[in-house]
Simulated assay, not measured.
Amino acid sequence: MSISAKDVKELREQTGAGMMDCKKALEEADGDFERAIEILRKKGQKLSEKRSDREANQGLIVTKVSDDGSKAAALEINCETDFVARNEDFQKRADQFVNLVFEEELDSVDELLKAKVDGLTVADHLKDMVGKIGEKIEINRVVLAKTGGQLVSYIHPGNQLGVLVEFEGEVNDDDIAKDVAMQVAAMKPLSVTRDGVDSSIVEKELEIAKDQLLNEGKPEEIAEKAAQGKLRRFYEERVLLEQKFVKDNSLSVKEYLKQNDTPLVKSFHRLQLGNDS
């Protein structure tokens, strides 16, 4: 049957698929819109399967924080190219998905994929996006945080790195909160305090430090004590509250917060494209 340009345009507006794909789908469906939409969705599924082994290391980090700072969500959505990551529709979908995490309080990728937006599961939305865009698209990480203190978000320009920081109480100066979030982004701390550092990492650092000293000819007893000194320097580099504040190296982050009558940091989440930090 003959398919009109008007019908093709209408299907394109409904699905976002290319003009030729819409025309072929309508022809295959004998003009039936519902069948044509299903054909386009199946096409997306097939393309998704074909691209499953491709690398998706571009994308966006997006966040959402409640007005009172008591709840926040963050999400990493990946694609194959920076060109797609900058696409307006891709960015709109990312915002929809992080809003869903926030509103429905989802704390895993699996939960998000099963949740629905506009009548379709997020998993089906991703298949549709693959069909339209032609790239592998996946959601890699989801973060949901709630607090009795205050949560603050920072997104580095380009949306490839994002941070959520939880303070123990209300922060009265937004600039101070942003400074600390930027510290987390730039300095990649492992934890807020020493207690949060995995014991296996501590043991490994001590072992490396001691072996270096023994190789330098230091006696065992001296090597043991000196290794503890090196461990203190490790903490100063990798523990947030002990790190030198990037804007004033004469202060630690903890000292900076206390000097400005700001609550200490309780936790943080750092999301960077392609990293599990």
Rank of each mutant, 00 (worst) to 15 (best):
Q183M: 10
G229F: 10
Y154E: 08
N159G: 07
M182I: 07
R233G: 15
E203P: 06
K178P: 01
D179I: 00
E170R: 12
L214Y: 05
Q160H: 14
V192F: 01
I222K: 09
L190Q: 12
A223C: 07
S200N: 12
A181L: 05
E203D: 15
K204S: 15
R232A: 14
M187H: 04
L161Q: 14
V202W: 00
A185Q: 01
Q183I: 05
L190P: 04
P157L: 00
I208M: 03
L190H: 08
E166D: 09
R194Q: 13
K210R: 11
L231N: 06
S191D: 03
F167K: 04
E220Q: 14
I176S: 00
R233I: 11
P189L: 12
L214R: 12
I176K: 03
D179L: 05
Y154M: 12
A181H: 05
V171P: 02
I201L: 10
Q183T: 12
N159H: 13
V184T: 12
E221Q: 11
D179N: 13
D175Q: 13
H156I: 08
V184C: 05
S200Y: 10
V180L: 11
L231I: 00
L231D: 04
M182D: 01
R232Q: 15
N159P: 02
R232W: 06
A177G: 09
G169T: 01
I155D: 06
T193D: 13
P157D: 00
A223F: 08
E224A: 12
D198F: 04
N159E: 14
L164P: 02
E168A: 14
E216C: 03
D173P: 01
G169Q: 07
D175K: 13
M182G: 01
P157F: 07
G158E: 06
A181W: 02
I155W: 02
G196R: 06
G196M: 01
Q228A: 15
Y154S: 10
A185P: 00
D174M: 07
A177F: 02
T193S: 15
A209P: 02
L161R: 13
L231T: 05
Y154F: 10
D211H: 13
V192E: 05
Q160Y: 11
A223E: 09
E203I: 07
E205W: 08
V165R: 06
E168V: 02
I201S: 01
K225Q: 11
R232I: 08
V197N: 03
I222T: 11
Q160C: 11
V180N: 09
E170T: 14
E205H: 09
K210G: 02
V192W: 05
E170I: 12
I201G: 02
F167P: 04
R233Y: 08
S191M: 01
P189D: 13
E224P: 02
E221P: 05
K210P: 11
G217H: 06
L214K: 13
G162D: 10
M187L: 09
G229Q: 10
A185N: 04
D173C: 04
K204A: 13
F167E: 02
I201Q: 06
P157W: 00
H156K: 08
